[in-house]
């Protein structure tokens, strides 16, 4: 019995290498055969004595792989067919907008830095931190007022990559999930997007710290 399945799968290999030459109905027939074989295999495995059951695992796996080959072929054919239909991406426009919005956010922060440098005696590092804080405050207000999502729609990566994008992801998640309550809503969802940033940022900093320690 096992041998018949094995033979069938072997002889199907050559068919699978000629998918290109086959008509759609032939391919449909092939998929139908594969499906029937899968049904027989599962039934045979279910009915086999317990210690022989695992003998079917490879056959079942092989059947599924063959089905995947046919599906993948059809998917590629479809991709090819629709490739010319894709709407043109407005890459130049979006890139210019990202440049403009991202640049302007940094300019605002730089203005804050310049102001603090002239008018205070704070350290450069603190000033740079406060400049970021000013952007975060501005973002929180604009998000609360329902304006930042429009900036994001316009600016794309330009509004996402600066620290304002990080702040917006925290503020918008907190606002959105307030309706699910203080703990499971705001509490659990506030870091939906910012959480991964903090996670990988922390992991990176610890690794770098360890390397610095070992290197020193």
């Amino acid at each position: 019995m096992n041998n018949t399945f094995f033979q069938n799968q072997r002889s199907r290999e050559s068919l699978l290498s000629q998918l290109k030459t086959m008509s759609e109905s032939k391919i449909a027939q092939l998929k139908n055969d594969l499906q029937k074989e899968h049904i027989s295999l599962i039934a045979a495995q279910a009915n086999a004595p317990r210690r022989e059951q695992k003998n079917y695992d490879t056959l079942i796996l092989h059947n599924e792989q063959q089905m995947k080959i046919v599906n993948d072929y059809q998917h590629t054919q479809y991709q090819r067919l629709i490739a010319s239909d894709a709407p043109k991406k407005p890459i130049v426009k979006n890139t210019l907008r990202a440049f403009l919005v991202g640049g302007l956010i940094c300019v605002i922060a730089q203005l804050v830095m310049n102001f603090l440098t002239i008018n205070t005696t704070l350290e450069t590092k603190t000033i740079s931190g406060l400049a970021s804080v000013s952007i975060i405050v501005l973002t929180a207000i604009l998000t609360g007022l329902g304006i930042y999502d429009e900036i994001g729609r316009f600016g794309g990566a330009g509004s996402m990559v600066p620290i304002s994008g990080f702040a917006n992801s925290i503020v918008s998640a907190a606002m959105e999930f307030k309706r699910e309550g203080m703990v499971y809503g705001i509490g659990a969802k506030i870091f939906t997007v910012a959480g991964p940033v903090i996670l990988y940022g922390t992991v990176a900093s610890v690794l770098i710290g360890l390397i610095a320690y070992l290197g020193a």
Binding site: P87, T143, D149, I151, G152, R153
Partner: peptide, 17 residues
């Protein structure tokens, strides 16, 4: 939006498709 994509106030660009 909030269920399948992002919070409604999050600034995300929409694709042409």
């Amino acid at each position: 939006e909030r269920q399948l994509r992002y919070p409604t106030e999050m600034g995300v660009q929409r694709l042409m498709t």
